[in-house]
Each structure stands twice: as structure tokens, then as C-alpha cells.
């Protein structure tokens, strides 16, 4: 669906990527790591300084009508609605501009506006909406039509938990219908629920491209296990762990998941003593952004 061959643009350096059809890809990275630039390149709003980009086998810069119809993009900083008109006026234009059948479009719009819960704001102007409501309506503008590629910049900005969940649900639905969705966000937690793959950008370079498990192993391998035990103190000397702390009947163990799995840790403790409760905590995915930065700074 998306192919990048050694693309250079602004902060982005030598991007080589291939995103297959039907994937949900999260683009994460610190501020000014090139997330929006990457999406704008795919939308054809920017021209690479060198390298090639193909979206659905076409150069997005060519802006041919077919490509434009198959792509739906939403950028955080670009206003969507005309301040002088109602939200509904904007939506009414979409089927005309894209040549969609009115009844099909209305059905889809109804389900999307119900899911994102902006239906009751349809007759207001954008200036009358709160930030979160505007964001919901803006997300509605791209999901109310069928596209092969969705490009979304910071979708969860201003969304509450309900909004986020509705958004995930719609993204999953689009994926089931065979669409490719690329989401850029600085907040990892927003993405991990839906993304199959992660692109981690650091100062314009792709430092990681793969699934979330892999990202954990590479950048944030440290897991923590909290065990409440009953009976005698387990012997942890033979486990390859970083550190542990004992507090009455509780043990907190920190270990590198590349060296020892959580299963091994628990089985080992079980072999020594009885367990009352177990809680395993993986490190926050956002930590990977920090790790990536630290790795690049220390060479």
C-alpha cells in the first residue's frame, strides 16, 4: 500500500518502509521527530527532497483523482470546517465532491456520527464546539466515507475515554473492511490498542518498525512482577533478574524479558512457595520514545 524508498524531507532522513495493505500502523516519536511530515508526504502535501514514495502504486504528489478519492487524511493543525457554515453543510458536500450515493453515505454518516457521538452538534458552527467535539466531528469527516488509506495525525488529541474507544472501534472496522490506517501520535498508549505495527521515529530516523511485542523487547525489555506469597521466602538467587525487593509477604522483581520470561519467574517462585496473587507490569510504551532518544545520544 505504501512504499518509501530512501526518502529525505526536512527532519526525515532515509526513510525506507513498506506498509502492506490492511495494516494499522502507529507512528510514534517525540515532538518534531517527523511524524506529521511523514503523513504529509504520504498525502502528497509535501515533495520529498530525494527518494520516492508510492501510495497504492501511485506517486501521491501527482494528485490524480483516483488517489485523492482513495485517501482520507486528517491533520491536527489544518482546519477542516468553514467557520461560516454548519457542521452539517460540510458533511452534505462530501457525497457530491466524492460522487457517492446519497443514501449509502447517509447510512454511513449516521453510524459514524452515532459512534463518535457528534450527531447532536451537526447544526452548530465549528466555532461553537468545544475542542473535543470538534475533534470528533473532524474524525467523522474522514470515516464517513470509504477510503483505502486513512492518514490521521494525533487522533486522540482532546478526546475523552469514550471518544477514544469509539475511535478504536471505527479503526478496527475499517481494518476489517481492508483499509490501511496510519496514525501518528506522540502518545503511545493511544495507539497500542489498535496498531498492528509501530514505526518509532527519533529525530527523523526510523529506529524501529515492527510489532508491539518486538518493540517491547528492543526498547523497553524491563518487566516488573509483583508477587504476594504465602509460606516460606522463595530463593531467587538462580533467576536472572535485575533486582528484587521484599516487603513482608510481597516481592517486587524487576527483570529483562529478553533474558527471562515472566512465565519462568512465576514457575520458579511456585516451585518454592505458594502464591496468593500475581501482577505483571510491562513498562509504559511511551518509555520507548525516551529509550530511542537515549540510545541515539549515547551512540
Amino acid at each position: 500500500m505504501v512504499i518509501c524508498n530512501s526518502v529525505i524531507k526536512f527532519v526525515l532522513k532515509n526513510i525506507d518502509l513498506h506498509i502492506p495493505k490492511g495494516k494499522v500502523v502507529g507512528v510514534i516519536g517525540a515532538s518534531s521527530s517527523g511524524k506529521t511530515t511523514f503523513l504529509k508526504l504520504l498525502a502528497g502535501l509535501l515533495q520529498p527532497e530525494s527518494g520516492e514514495i508510492y501510495v497504492n502504486r501511485c506517486n501521491p504528489l501527482g494528485k490524480n483523482i483516483a488517489t485523492l478519492r482513495e485517501t482520507a487524511a486528517l491533520f491536527a493543525k489544518v482546519p477542516v470546517f468553514d467557520e461560516k457554515e454548519n457542521i452539517r453543510d460540510y458533511f452534505n458536500k462530501i457525497p457530491i465532491v466524492y460522487g457517492l450515493k446519497k443514501s449509502d453515505f447517509d447510512d454511513r454518516l449516521r453510524s459514524v456520527s452515532e459512534a463518535l457521538d457528534f450527531e447532536k452538534y451537526m447544526d452548530l458552527k465549528v466555532t461553537d464546539l468545544s475542542f473535543g467535539m470538534r475533534r470528533r466531528a473532524e474524525l467523522g469527516t474522514i470515516f464517513c466515507r470509504d477510503a483505502k488509506l486513512y492518514l490521521i495525525d494525533e487522533p486522540c488529541l482532546g478526546l475523552d475515554q469514550n471518544g477514544k474507544e469509539a475511535f478504536y472501534e471505527i479503526v478496527r472496522k475499517c481494518q476489517r473492511e481492508g483499509s490501511t490506517v496510519i496514525i501518528a501520535s506522540h502518545n503511545m498508549e493511544d495507539i497500542k490498542n489498535v496498531a498492528d505495527r509501530i514505526i518509532l521515529l527519533n529525530e527523523g530516523q526510523v529506529v524501529f518498525y515492527g510489532d508491539i511485542e518486538e518493540l517491547h523487547k528492543r526498547f523497553i525489555p524491563m518487566d516488573e512482577c509483583f508477587v504476594q506469597y504465602e509460606g516460606r521466602l522463595p530463593d531467587l538467587s538462580d533467576l536472572e533478574i535485575e533486582q528484587y525487593r521484599i516487603d513482608n509477604d510481597k516481592i517486587q522483581i524487576r527483570y529483562n524479558s529478553n533474558h527471562v520470561t515472566s512465565k519462568e519467574v512465576i514457575e520458579h517462585i511456585l516451585s518454592c512457595t505458594k502464591i496468593k496473587s500475581v501482577h505483571i507490569k510491562q513498562e509504559d510504551l511511551s518509555e520507548s520514545i525516551k529509550t530511542a532518544k537515549a540510545i541515539s545520544e549515547n551512540g
Partner: peptide
């Protein structure tokens, strides 16, 4: 900045 939205219309 809404020129970007316009550019994406077919």
C-alpha cells in the same frame, strides 16, 4: 492553513 484540506479534495 485550510488550503491543505482543499488540496486533498478530488
Amino acid at each position: 492553513g485550510s488550503i491543505a484540506t482543499e488540496m486533498l479534495l478530488p
